[in-house]
Design a binder for these strands. Structure first.
Lengths: 133, 133
DNA sequence: ATATCTGTAACAAGTATAGTTACAATTCCC
DNA sequence: GGGAATTGTAACTATACTTGTTACAGATAT
């Protein structure tokens, strides 16, 4: 959804886009969009303006926003989950497996980040416009 | 948790390990373990035996089980989520973004798989035994 | 036969997300 | 200044998912 939102903004250039309008395309409620826009704003990817004729636009050019930045701005977890409760510290496996898995998570996360860094919003627009050209 | 379980089994060699015993190390209920063992069994990673003195053991040697296989056996989603509802098909972005994101998901998933394929259960054991040597 | 395990169904509790309503704060335009 | 429009955010509901738990049938060794 974050990619969807930013793609919409990218296609509108400097014009402010209303959360209601984005919600229509994403097919959800405007508040859901505004929540995501808040996260994207925290990551300095978008700029919002309150009041009449307000709305949101990209903070940078589409070619300067990678999918990795978007992912980091809104991601809420890791690729795989760790133990919900800490394992038994009296067991040699339980005592040491968490550190191992935690390192593995970081490694995987980095690998995902590198992949996502290969794409920018500009690439997304290109792919999408190609599809209905 | 799946990695934890399989590491326990790997360290027990050909001996059957009871779900109760694994639960003690993972710090959870035996049924939770048996549920995961069921998935690992479907993936032909473990062999279980019911009845008295039953339990579970690895189906193969630890060096022949990669973390990628474990991940695929128990993974229940993707790295990032797609739209909960389908986007608006009357919008050029909404109409085409899902296909793009779906392809991206596959690409990322493959990249994660390649990373995880670099590690086997044997490596996990080595790391863990190093930690308390 | 009996004791011991697994496999699985059923259910409760906790947690997360999405969607919704409501409203204060902000801003433009007249 | 006043009214209309829009964001930001709080609060609540509904849904869904995961975990943990109890219960029990089926299988197996002694």
């Amino acid at each position: 959804m974050a990619v969807h939102i930013l793609t919409m903004l990218a296609r509108s250039g400097d014009e402010n886009v209303k959360s209601e309008c984005i919600a229509g395309s994403v097919n959800t409620n405007a508040v859901v969009i505004r929540r995501l826009l808040g996260q994207l704003n925290n990551a300095n990817l978008v700029v919002s303006q309150t009041g009449a004729f307000g709305g949101t636009r990209l903070a940078r050019q589409p070619e300067d926003i990678s999918l990795c930045e978007i992912y980091k701005a809104v991601c809420c977890g890791e690729v795989f989950a760790l133990h919900p409760k800490s394992p038994n510290q009296d067991c040699p496996v339980g005592k040491n497996i968490e550190a191992f898995l935690c390192n593995l998570q970081k490694e995987i996360d980095q690998s995902v980040g590198e992949k996502l860094r290969q794409y920018t919003l500009r690439d997304v627009i290109a792919k999408i416009e190609l599809a209905y050209a």
